[in-house]
Write a protein that binds this DNA or RNA. Structure first.
Lengths: 333, 333
DNA sequence: ATGAAAGCGCTAACAC
DNA sequence: GTGTTAGCGCTTTCAT
């Protein structure tokens, strides 16, 4: 396997330079020479060493992807989109997970820089101890996906979460609901805030007083959705509709409702967010907001790619549109 | 940012060699020298260039991960496990997706080799047109995860799928079921075969004749599970139990059963496979086989790591144990 | 159309 | 303890 230009040079009788140019199909090499060299290369199964190339060129054709939560099916889809776009641009992806830990995120970025990635795509850790200040000092291009960081809004590719949260809540209100439980996401995720704001503003617009205890924070997973809903019911918190931070939490909530004898959507209407693949096939197909997950990844990469090609390009926020899917857990359509 | 040893050398007055050794904390450098150099490095925010290091050392501390289906929550978990183990060994991961396409897989491996990865972890495409012959010619270590390839069994880290499939089917049989529908996985996934064999052998052991039409192939996703189950019911295929290839398919099946008026588990018992996170929280918590997904990834990496350290080490198959979780979609326990 | 030589940033072998 | 030198495999001037 492998081999090197030097080896090819010795075997072919041509200089390393000519061999290099021939293999890269430059056009100032005589066709016959080119053919001979390429033949030889093929024969000995030569594979160019991209590490050497990267060192020489000061460019690795590699991006770093720093994900806060890649077990989440939502981000798994986003990452597929990134990979897809990267591949079509001849780039690769070093993937690092942070488990929502800012220290790990910082470390990840540093080590990726050492590895000379050409750009960075992050699903960043939000909340108090975020790395926005550090990110601002970076000398390579970077984009944030599905989340935003104060002062770095222009670096984000987002969706219309506020608008959809607002719309959902407004619809509930129009349908006569006054006690709408919001199973919110963790505060360290910026989307939680956007969705909460949408909820809150919609209530205000509908003239319904906002009530603290109708917002119950979850960690964004099914298990917590289940427990928090269960507890809410036990504590005799009355509600007739649930706007859930995401589908996972909604699945847990549906389970708790069922165990407590509530019928969906008759007694309680439920809507999720994200629209995961299987949500449509649940016992009650789940109403949700369809976010273009793969596209989020693709757009983020393309945006990053632009900045890698033109370092002077200015950043601008991108917002993709999502769509509310009305299914069996809600009554309206 | 960045800088280089040369720069540090000039600024500090020491030779590049000394600088290099100081930064790597070798012990034949005078403590004061070391301190001075490290200080300076810190000051100017020096980050060692790992690309240059890789070239020099002929070692990248990077593994290639070739996944056939990383949108699948099952493999998403596996990949978390890989990443976790890799990180603790100071390795990184180039992730490439193949979408079950052997041509893409081949291309992925080739380009990863060009990138000088030290080892390869694959969730390989199985079936007719697989790349097992090519894999055999590889000069770097590799491991297959959760799937096997003929002639490369020793390179796999697997779970006891056959045994659990057998056990499940036997339990159904003991419970009096004679018409057990198996929603099988696609033939291009080796696990489909193992699970099917387990089903088949169990029937034989129980003296129940195997019937072709009780095995319905799916693509492993919820949507197909739904459609295939729906069709099976419409075609008046009688069955009183379903052994599903995985949880996703089972979710689809549960939906179809509900739409057709069957009650689970009274009319039809259902069991899945894999035990995804949210399966416990479905309307009916799903009985399933809990596969240690992250551990699968971790063990595979450790196995690979051993081989990267000692190229002469012989390969041996690893089989991890899974566990059947009895929940509400089945009657036995 | 082809070749010679330099250099990307690093580490290792060998000297002193 | 520290310095000198060579070289990993590649591309890029600059000659010829």
């Amino acid at each position: 396997m492998a081999g090197s230009l030097k080896e090819l040079s010795e075997l072919s009788g041509y200089s390393m330079n000519t061999v290099s140019r021939a293999l890269r199909d430059e056009d100032d090499v005589k066709p016959e020479t080119k053919a001979a060299i390429r033949n030889l290369a093929q024969q000995m199964g030569y594979t160019p060493n991209r590490v050497a190339k990267s060192l020489r060129l000061g460019k690795t054709n590699t991006i770093g992807v720093v994900s806060a939560d890649s077990a989440n099916p939502f981000f798994a889809e986003v990452i597929i989109g990134i990979e897809d776009a990267a591949r079509s641009r001849n780039h690769h992806m070093l993937l690092v997970n942070t488990e929502e830990d800012p220290a790990r995120e910082l470390e990840a970025i540093e080590v990726l820089l050492g590895r000379q990635v050409d750009g960075l795509l992050l699903i960043p850790v939000c909340g108090e101890r975020n790395n926005s200040e550090y990110l601002k000092t970076l000398s390579i291009p970077f984009e944030l996906i599905g989340r935003w960081l104060p002062g770095l809004e222009e670096h984000s590719v987002l969706t219309d979460e506020y608008e959809k949260a607002n719309e959902i809540t407004s619809l509930f209100a129009k349908n006569g609901h006054r006690d709408i439980l919001h199973l919110s996401g963790p505060t360290f995720v910026s989307g939680s805030l956007d969705r909460l704001r949408g909820y809150r503003d919609a209530l205000e617009e509908a003239g319904i007083p906002f009530r603290d205890n109708l917002v119950v924070m979850t960690d964004g997973h099914a298990e917590d959705g289940y427990h928090k809903t269960y507890e809410a019911i036990q504590s005799e918190l009355n509600f007739t509709a649930i706007f859930s931070f995401n589908d996972l939490v909604a699945v847990g909530a549906l389970r708790a409702l069922k165990e407590c004898g509530y019928r969906v959507p008759k007694d309680v209407e439920v809507i999720g967010f994200d629209d995961l693949d299987y949500s449509r096939f649940l016992h009650l197909s789940l109403s949700s907001v369809r976010i273009p997950k793969q596209q989020l990844g693709r757009v983020a990469f393309e945006e990053l790619y632009e900045h890698m090609r033109d370092k002077s390009k200015t950043y601008g926020r991108r917002t993709l549109e999502s769509r509310i899917m009305f299914r069996e857990t809600t009554l309206f359509d």
